[in-house]
Amino acid sequence: MYPSRFKYESPKTIEAAVALLDAGKGDAKILAGGQSLVPMLKLRFAFPDQIVDINNIPGLDYHRFDADGSLHIGALCRHEDLEHSAEIAERQPTIAAAAPLVADPIVRTRGTFVGSVCHADPQGDWAATMIALGGHLVVQGPKGKRTIDMKDFVLGPYANALNYNEIAIEAVIPAPKGVARGGYLKLERRVGDFATASVAVALDMDGNRVLRAGIALAGVGGKTIDANEEASALVGHDLTESIIDTVAAAVAAKAEPRTDHRGSSDYKRQIVKTFVKRILVAQIAEKVA
């Protein structure tokens, strides 16, 4: 690997990291898991002047449920921490379903949840999951902390709402009303391939009744597709095959896929529709058991 020349710093505090970003005036990049940044450095698609390695900042590698039921994921929480978490498996099915589908097992040992969200790859699994879950990010800059709603965070391909001198330090998923249900499906040609289409579904349910519904898509548009509005048609209703069909069709229509070597736009919509249906049908109360 022969990247362009860069300066490297490994600060011990968030404040020091923010100061480095601030001094970099947009030419500094954060290194967390490095699973996107390092390949880009290698290919010289990215050539920052300054790398700010946050891996030596203590206390960021957590994920925990607070007493109110909200889920908090620190900036250095690795994909595999979520994949192997018993708490996540029990309490947060959408994340539990997505975690083993993120990239490949090697990437999951290093890559971070928050880093993946910030990378804002239109194919990214976690940005879609966060949108479906109605999550937000806590970010810290020179003037302190603020929060950014996921729906406002992804601006376009590889573009997010962070200022150059801000670090996303935590992802927050609000407590479910009722019981959290949902799932994640992805069509890929091979483990670690860019997805042909991915679907994240997050429901809050009371028995078979939907209290909140979120759906987001990856791989089928220039950025992560927010289909929460289409999903909201489920709210207040019992899950039935007929309402599922209607919502699946509406979500597929919301996708903006391009015809390419992974398939035609029609084919990708068909995958979206099929996956939305499959996830939702599996949540019908008597099938969950």
């Binding site: 069509l187 040609r189 042909t196 070597h261 992974r262 398939g263 035609s264 084919y267």
Partner: peptide
């Protein structure tokens, strides 16, 4: 034989 081609 990618899935899209089989589907077609």
């Amino acid at each position: 034989l990618m899935p899209n081609r089989v589907y077609e």
